[in-house]
Simulated scan of single mutants.
Amino acid sequence: MHTIVVANNKGGVGKTTIATQIAFHLRHAGHSVVAVDLDGQVNLTSALPGVRVVGNALGMVETGAVPPFTTEPGELVLIEGDAEVPVSSADAVLRGTAQGLRSIDGPEFCVIDTPPTFSAVVYGAMLSADYMLAPIELKKFSLDGVEGVLKAFVQVQELNEGITFLGLLPSRFDAVKQSERDTLQLVAESYSALIIPHAIRNRVGYEMAEAEGLPVFEVTTRSGKEAAAEFGAFFAWLRTALQEEA
C-alpha cells in the first residue's frame, strides 16, 4: 500500500480538497483507496458522502488498529473522522496513530487528511507514510509556513527514512492578485527543487465538488471544467512522481 499524507500546519490551504480529489482520481484510475480523516473538523468525511465507512479515526488512534476490511479495484472507502481525535503531543497518540495506519491492509493507496497543526496525530501519520504532500497558500508570511513544513519533514525523516517529500503545492492560488503572483515567484526561486510545477486555483468548481461530494471532473459548470483540467494535470504529475519513487 502506498500512503500519502497531506499536511501543513496552517489552516485554509485546501488540504481537504486536495486529499479528496486525489482519492477520487485514484479511484477513477481503477485503484482501491482508503481515505483517512484525522482532522477533528471531519471535513474529509463530509466531502465523501455515501462512501463505505470501514473504521473510525478515534478508535484507530486509541487502539492502534483498524477493523479488517476488504476493497475491490476501483473502490474508495473511508476511515471517518471524529471530533474527539486528540490534538496533543502525547506519545501514546503518536504511537496509536502510526500503528493504526500501519495495520491497514488491502487497498493500493491510503490518502490521509490532517488537522492544521503538527500535533501527535500528524507526526504519527507522517511516521507511517510513504509520501508527504504539502499544500501552501501564497499569502503574506507563507514562507514562514514553508519552513515549518520542511522542519517537520526533516524531523520525521530521521525515524522514517522511507518517506518521500513530494513537494510544495501552491493551493487556492488567486492569479488575479499581484501579491500572490509575486509570492509564487518568490517561493519558486527560494525552493526551486521542492515546488510542484502546478497550482490549484481558487475556483468555485472545487467548492461545488466538495459540497456535493463529487470528483471535480463531474462538475459540469465552466468553473468545474476548468478545475477538472487543472487538477487532472496535477494528478498526471503526481502519478508520474509516484511511479518514479516506487
Rank of each mutant, 00 (worst) to 15 (best):
3 T>Q: 15
3 T>W: 08
6 V>D: 13
7 A>I: 07
8 N>L: 03
9 N>P: 09
11 G>T: 07
13 V>Q: 11
13 V>R: 02
13 V>S: 12
15 K>E: 09
15 K>C: 02
16 T>M: 05
17 T>I: 00
21 Q>M: 03
21 Q>V: 01
22 I>R: 04
23 A>C: 11
24 F>I: 03
25 H>Q: 10
26 L>R: 10
26 L>M: 13
26 L>Q: 09
27 R>G: 13
27 R>N: 11
28 H>I: 02
30 G>A: 03
31 H>I: 00
32 S>R: 02
32 S>G: 08
33 V>K: 08
35 A>Q: 11
35 A>F: 05
36 V>N: 08
37 D>Q: 08
37 D>A: 03
44 L>N: 04
48 L>W: 09
48 L>I: 11
50 G>N: 09
55 G>E: 04
56 N>T: 02
57 A>V: 00
57 A>H: 09
58 L>D: 12
59 G>N: 06
60 M>F: 03
61 V>H: 01
62 E>Q: 08
63 T>L: 00
64 G>D: 00
69 F>R: 09
69 F>T: 08
72 E>H: 07
76 L>K: 05
82 D>I: 00
82 D>S: 10
86 P>Y: 02
86 P>Q: 06
86 P>S: 04
87 V>A: 14
87 V>Q: 14
89 S>G: 14
89 S>I: 05
91 D>A: 01
94 L>W: 03
94 L>N: 06
95 R>D: 11
95 R>I: 01
96 G>T: 01
97 T>M: 01
98 A>L: 05
98 A>E: 15
99 Q>S: 09
102 R>S: 10
104 I>L: 12
105 D>T: 13
106 G>H: 03
110 C>Y: 06
112 I>E: 14
113 D>G: 01
114 T>V: 02
119 S>N: 07
119 S>F: 01
121 V>D: 09
121 V>L: 02
123 Y>W: 06
124 G>Q: 04
124 G>S: 05
125 A>M: 09
126 M>A: 05
129 A>Y: 10
130 D>L: 05
130 D>H: 11
131 Y>C: 03
136 I>M: 13
138 L>N: 14
141 F>M: 12
141 F>V: 13
141 F>A: 06
144 D>C: 00
146 V>H: 03
147 E>N: 14
148 G>P: 09
149 V>T: 12
153 F>A: 02
156 V>E: 15
157 Q>M: 14
157 Q>A: 13
159 L>S: 15
159 L>D: 15
159 L>N: 14
160 N>Q: 15
161 E>N: 11
163 I>T: 11
164 T>F: 14
165 F>A: 11
168 L>Y: 13
171 S>L: 05
173 F>I: 05
174 D>T: 09
175 A>H: 10
179 S>C: 02
180 E>P: 08
182 D>T: 10
186 L>H: 06
186 L>G: 06
188 A>L: 04
190 S>C: 10
190 S>F: 06
190 S>H: 06
191 Y>V: 04
194 L>M: 15
199 A>W: 04
199 A>S: 13
201 R>I: 03
202 N>K: 07
204 V>A: 12
212 E>C: 01
214 L>W: 12
215 P>Q: 01
215 P>K: 01
215 P>S: 04
216 V>T: 06
217 F>L: 09
217 F>C: 10
218 E>R: 04
220 T>Y: 07
222 R>E: 12
224 G>L: 06
226 E>R: 04
228 A>T: 11
232 G>I: 01
234 F>R: 08
235 F>K: 07
241 A>G: 03
246 A>R: 07
